[in-house]
């Protein structure tokens, strides 16, 4: 057993291939993790419903593809490239708007009245919202796994006989996630709203005293986080090609693990954490077995929380009393 494992591990091409897979799915996880980390940074709420928001985004993307007539078997072969591109573009506009609006409304209706309540009250409410979203997803796509139209060709961009595979799908994931992360960084670092956001995260009361409309800032945070989840859901659906009403729970938990790993509330940390979790997932699947992947990721979560609760990039914060 062990020699085989070593032999596999030192199969250099295989390792590189797993790293490509891992970094791709890691970029997706990072996109979801950003939504968690921003919301946590600003209202100290673990937004359990975030993963299920992501799931609803995929459901909407499926509905849009169905509306374009791409969901029937065989429809993709006959559809023109223009239709497909139009459908993808439509998804990339409509789904983030939908997710952002939904996230913002949930904050307004459910979490806002609980701002001064003990910390567990909004957390439990978020679990409730997550259940409601899951039920909506169940009605939307049904109880089984649903195939998402596989519209992107799985062509190897490195040439047909190259040892490594870097496909159009990988490129799509990277091409959507990296610009978004850059845009987010610019937004948070260099705009006045971003500055207000950082101020609110540091100290809401002081921020309010300085004339910052903290409720507006919190609302914007939920909007931005929701939009990122929306982008993530479209790319995920195009990349993985299977959606189900239960996918939000596990992906959300992976993403949260990533956020915690990077240091929750820390935006570059969430990206780093996502990439690490993606790598752990891919390498775990390759060398230990797919059935153990989830157990490994959650074990990583526990170990990090126990030994370094502030994460890789987070500063150690003392408990305020």
């Amino acid at each position: 057993m062990l020699p085989i494992l070593f032999a596999e591990a030192f199969n250099w091409t295989n390792l590189q291939q797993q790293c490509i897979t891992g970094l791709t799915s890691g970029a997706l996880i990072a996109l979801i993790a950003l939504g968690y980390t921003m919301v946590y940074g600003i209202v100290e709420l673990i937004n359990f419903a975030h993963g299920d928001l992501f799931m609803l985004g995929s459901c909407l993307a499926l509905t849009i593809f169905t509306a374009f007539g791409l969901a029937q078997p065989g429809a993709i072969d006959s559809a023109s490239n223009v239709t497909i591109l139009l459908a993808i573009a439509c998804c990339l506009v409509a789904v983030p708007i939908f997710c952002a609006g939904l996230n913002r409304s949930v904050d307004y209706v459910v979490y806002r009245p609980l701002r001064t309540a003990p910390r567990l009250a909004p957390l439990v409410s978020a679990i409730g919202v997550s259940f409601i979203f899951m039920n909506i997803g169940l009605f939307w796509v049904g109880p089984q796994d649903v195939n998402f139209p596989d519209v992107i060709q799985d062509r190897n961009l490195l040439g047909d006989d190259a040892n490594l595979r870097f496909t159009l799908k990988n490129l799509l994931v990277v091409g959507v996630t990296v610009p978004l992360m850059i845009a987010l960084t610019v937004f948070v670092k260099f705009t006045s709203l971003g500055k207000a956001m950082r101020a609110t995260a540091q100290n809401p009361t002081a921020a309010r005293l300085m004339g910052i409309n903290t409720e507006f800032v919190i609302g914007t945070t939920f909007l931005v986080g929701g939009a990122l989840a929306g982008f993530g859901s479209v790319v995920y659906a195009l990349y993985v090609n299977t959606i189900s009403y239960q996918m939000g729970f596990q992906n959300g938990l992976y993403a949260f693990t990533a956020a915690v790993l990077g240091g929750i509330g820390n935006i570059p940390g969430a990206v780093l954490g996502g990439l690490v979790i993606g790598l752990v997932q891919a390498l775990g699947t390759a060398y230990i077995g797919a059935t153990w992947t989830s157990a490994i990721v959650f074990a990583v979560l526990i170990v990090i929380l126990v030994f370094r609760p502030s994460g890789l990039l987070g500063a150690r914060v003392r408990e305020k009393v």
Binding site: L120, L123, L253, F256, A295, F298, L301, L305, V306, P309
Partner: peptide
């Protein structure tokens, strides 16, 4: 794990539950 803050503890117990199930 019990020295962790409330919401982190919630996460650890959740993760532990899933580890046991898997």
């Amino acid at each position: 794990t019990l020295r962790l803050r409330g919401d982190y503890l919630a996460l650890v117990t959740l993760g532990f539950g899933e580890v046991v199930r898997f």
